[in-house]
């Protein structure tokens, strides 16, 4: 069914009314009478229902528009080694217990780290050498800047580093047994699900991993290039990427360019505190192309699931079940 054909079936006056209703329904403080008037309007004919569905869908899609503001970060200056509150460890009840079981590795990571962000948070920090770091959601790093060293360990998540050139040691980010070094420029490193992705935005980055000393285990990235390696493995050869897509998170967005559904949902899942559980594999494999705002990740997950005819149930703070 072509779009033009569908639209020609909707009278212009009805389409205008539908948009009026969208704006009224999203105003807040709608009265009961107005709501009933809307239902009566919508029920007049299938054309009215269709016109509303079309405008509603458009309104939903507008969630990806650029609000013209710089990204929500810096949200907060990360605190250095906050003590673990007793409250966060003393959890009771079956649900809380299962959540704790899932969260346990996170707690351990968090205790080792110097900087952390929670779900949906981003934060910037200036490192002791003057380099800056932008941490994405659910990320943890530990730093070692003693005796002229410039070592950053990415324990989990994703961060972009703007490196201040220095005469001494190169700036080095280690993750899952590999290391990404630069002396100047900016690059991003992410460590998700046992795989590390390194993306150079400006300047060159050398990425090493696997057996020490072997020449094949070093890859040099030019700006706009990316490499990946598995835990303890050697980096793959560099490939060109679209930086706007890869680093969209810096502006609080997630961009999917023909991404499989499950992978897209998993990516959005990084921005929510709940664990994602699929109780079905019935979704089709058609790839997703879309832009979402990370701060609206719950709505984005819901919208994505609906495209596959799946339903979403959420126990806030615990789990999101997609079935």
């Amino acid at each position: 069914m072509g779009k033009g054909q569908e639209r020609s079936e909707i009278d212009r006056g009805v389409a205008l009314d539908a948009r009026d209703w969208i704006v009224r329904l999203t105003a807040g403080n709608l009265s009961r009478q107005e709501l009933e008037r809307f239902r009566a309007w919508q029920a007049q004919s299938p054309e009215h229902a269709r016109a509303f569905a079309r405008e509603k869908q458009f309104w939903q899609l507008l969630q990806g528009v650029n609000d013209g503001n710089p990204p929500a970060a810096p949200v907060a200056v990360p605190t250095l080694r906050r003590p673990v509150s007793r409250r966060s460890l003393l959890v009771g009840g079956a649900l809380a217990a299962s959540a704790a079981a899932v969260a346990a590795p996170r707690v351990i990571t968090w205790m080792r780290s110097d900087f952390t962000t929670g779900s949906g948070e981003q934060a910037t920090a200036t490192l002791p050498d003057g380099s800056t770091m932008l941490l994405n959601t659910n990320s943890s790093v530990a730093i070692d800047f003693r005796a002229g060293r410039r070592l950053v360990s990415l324990l989990a998540g994703e961060a972009e580093f703007a490196v201040k050139p220095a005469a001494g040691a190169p700036f080095s980010v280690s993750a899952l047994g590999g290391s990404s070094d630069a002396n100047g420029g900016a690059y991003a490193v992410r460590s998700i699900a046992g795989e590390v992705t390194v993306t150079a935005s400006t300047g060159t980055v050398s990425v090493t991993g696997g057996e020490a000393g072997a020449a094949a285990n070093m890859v040099s990235l030019a700006p706009g290039q990316q490499t990946r390696y598995l835990s303890g493995g050697a980096p793959r050869s560099a490939s060109d990427v679209d930086l706007d897509t890869e680093l969209a998170w810096r502006a609080g967005r997630v961009v999917f360019d023909a991404r499989p559904f499950s992978s897209a949902v998993a990516e959005l899942g990084r921005y929510v505190s709940e664990r994602l559980v699929f109780t079905t594999h019935a979704h089709d494999a058609s790839p997703i192309t879309a832009v979402f705002l990370t701060r609206d990740a719950h709505a984005a997950i819901e919208a994505l699931a609906h495209t596959q005819g799946l339903s979403v149930r959420r126990v806030p703070g615990v789990v999101i079940v997609i079935s």
Binding site: L25, T26, F38, R50, A53, K56, L61, A290, V291, E302
Partner: peptide, 22 residues
Amino acid sequence: EVNDLLWQSVDEISPERIVMGR
């Protein structure tokens, strides 16, 4: 009710169009 009206999935429109291209 308004929330349901605005955010329920849209059955009449095919899924692949519910996401906006770049």
